[in-house]
Simulated assay, not measured.
Amino acid sequence: MATLFDPLQLGEITLANRIVMAPLTRSRAAEGNSPGPLAAQYYAQRASAGLIIAEASPISAMAQGYLDTPGIWSEAQVGAWQKVTEAVHAGGGKIVLQLWHVGRVSNGSLLPDGAAPVSSTAQPAQAKTFTREGFTPVSAPRALRDDEIPALLEDYRRAARNARAAGFDGVEIHAANTYLLEQFLRDSINDRSGPYGGGIENRARLVCEVAAAICQEIGAGRVGIRLSPLTTFGGGTPRDSAPQALYGYVVEQMARLGLAYVHMIEGETGGAREPEGVSFDYAALRRSFSGAWMVNNGYDKALAEAAVASGKADLVAFGKAFIANPDLVARLCSDAALNTPHVATFYGGGAAGYTDYPLLNPA
């Protein structure tokens, strides 16, 4: 039986273990939406993870939805990210970048010239986002025109190309948590007609085209995708009317493209893995995908060990535990106590709650 501490071949990327640092927005980017001066230290401290998925990074200025999130569309951002990837690789780690477009989960104050966010729909989200004024209601979006999709695909291509130029081992497509790609996927959000609206195949067309474009750009063996079939992300977004069929179709298409992995958020993001009154057969999706299967949401060591040993998953992603425990792998291996995360320092700020959590062995 496999264990959390066994190596794994993840497409083209060789991992030392199966413990993954989940992507974690920290809102500490510097001027120009580049990784801040402490980012290299922060990620290097966590290089013992089998894989680090760096924080979600907007693929363009129009993709941003939260204050001070580091992007991947400019040369300056590529140069800043290079310092991060070099530090992680020097520590023996592997790191991929999560490619992000928030769609309608944004506020005009964060977008060029105060523009309206773009989405599959003109209907606003029932959500708030992090701005200079704190958590602020999102702005009303406009529906993307079909003739704007090619430029969006090029933004994803460029982001993947830039990620590799910055030294990342690969990328993860963010198609979860009700952001842009999921806004096209779900019939609870997508109210358009034409090639990107209506039935499952049409609603999944954009995420399939994005994945195909990125695979063509950097190779499928360096690409993963994050999905969240059941999340309402805080209760603000209804689930699709037929999530099993929808996400089953998406996973089948990702398998055909040969993606390295699927990163599956089980249940409600940050909440129950089995929401009351909802059933979902993750195992059926797992059987249809030949790449690696990563699970996420509320896993502790015992649950993670059971998931890997049983074959339910190949890897397990941990979020808040990695914020507070840079040496999480060592702590899990030795059954050491875990530090408690400081929630007040999750978003924004400096070293406090970012690079100053204590290690088991400071040397």
Rank of each mutant, 00 (worst) to 15 (best):
S139D: 02
F280V: 11
A337N: 07
S188K: 10
I59C: 02
P275W: 06
A127D: 08
E12A: 15
L97V: 05
L144V: 09
G319W: 04
V138S: 10
F130K: 12
T136I: 11
G277M: 12
G198N: 10
A284D: 13
K128I: 13
A255S: 13
N33L: 12
L97E: 02
F289L: 04
P243H: 06
G79N: 13
E154S: 09
R18Y: 01
S288V: 07
L110I: 11
G108S: 15
A307P: 01
D314Q: 01
G291Y: 00
D146N: 11
D187C: 10
A40C: 11
M294V: 09
E276K: 15
L227F: 11
E12M: 11
L180H: 00
Y66V: 15
F184W: 09
F168M: 01
G267L: 05
L4R: 07
I323V: 14
A165H: 02
F184G: 03
R46G: 02
G277C: 11
A159H: 03
G234E: 05
V84Y: 00
D314H: 01
Q123D: 14
A321D: 09
A220M: 03
E274F: 14
I149R: 05
L111I: 08
T340D: 07
K94F: 10
Y357I: 11
A292I: 13
V316R: 00
N296T: 03
K320S: 14
G349W: 03
S288F: 07
A39M: 14
Y42W: 11
Y179D: 03
L359A: 10
L359M: 13
V308S: 09
L4Y: 01
L99H: 03
L181H: 00
Y347H: 12
P137L: 07
A2I: 09
E154K: 13
T25D: 08
A321P: 01
D327K: 04
G234A: 12
N361P: 03
R157L: 09
A166I: 02
A47V: 00
R256K: 14
I189E: 05
P70D: 10
N339V: 04
A284P: 09
G219H: 02
Q45V: 08
G235S: 06
L359D: 11
G103A: 10
V308L: 07
M264N: 06
V207H: 03
Y249D: 12
E217L: 00
Q41A: 15
E31S: 15
T25L: 13
G221S: 02
A211S: 12
Y282A: 08
F130I: 12
E182H: 07
D155V: 05
